[in-house]
């Protein structure tokens, strides 16, 4: 079994690990780092449940190999309240009813986080565009969009 050594930052902490070359980042995050907040909905890059932020960009972690993360900065849903305080997005998701079964929620939050980091004041159309790769079967998206809009700089609060 081929392995390589990778050094990366996960949720603010630097780590070095040996990883199998055929292992996806999603599997690595869930099964090696035991950060199970990130979900697998398809394993094929089609649902967005596995979204994490890698070097500032939202990526489908099932489509990235763990071996590729050498030098990368990775944030998972666990990072949002890492400081001990909930992120505004988390608060707004709860307030707006943007969560139902919660399976898409971690991925949705990370996509939204990456969006707001790069565009603090997105339009509704830009929000829809950004989360188009994150499937949610429960909510119908309306309350998710409202939550993201409300978390943005131009949001109500």
């Amino acid at each position: 079994m081929n392995t390589v050594s990778v050094t990366f930052t996960i949720n603010g902490e630097k780590e070095t690990r040996q990883v199998r070359t055929d292992m996806t980042l999603l599997k690595f995050i869930r099964e090696t780092l035991l950060l199970t907040g990130t979900k697998e909905g398809c394993g094929e890059g089609e649902c967005g449940a596995c979204t994490v932020i890698m070097n500032g960009k939202a990526v489908h972690s099932c489509m990235v190999l763990a071996a590729e993360i050498d030098g990368a900065d990775i944030q998972t849903v666990e990072s949002l309240a890492g400081s001990g305080e909930l992120d505004k997005l988390q608060l707004k998701f709860m307030e707006h009813g943007a969560v139902q079964c919660g399976f898409c929620t971690p991925g949705m939050l990370m996509t939204a986080k990456a969006l707001l980091n790069s565009n603090p004041n997105p339009t509704k159309a830009q929000i829809k565009e950004a989360i188009a790769g994150n499937l949610c079967r429960c909510t119908g998206y309306k309350q998710i969009i409202a939550a993201i809009q409300d978390s943005s700089r131009g949001g109500r609060k």
């Binding site: 907040g37 998972t76 666990e78 949002l80 909930l86 307030e95 929620t105």
Partner: peptide
């Protein structure tokens, strides 16, 4: 607000 909301937005919900 949902009582299970916090577990779900933090990724704690198993």
């Amino acid at each position: 607000q949902r009582v299970d909301g916090l577990a779900k937005v933090t990724g704690c919900a198993k």
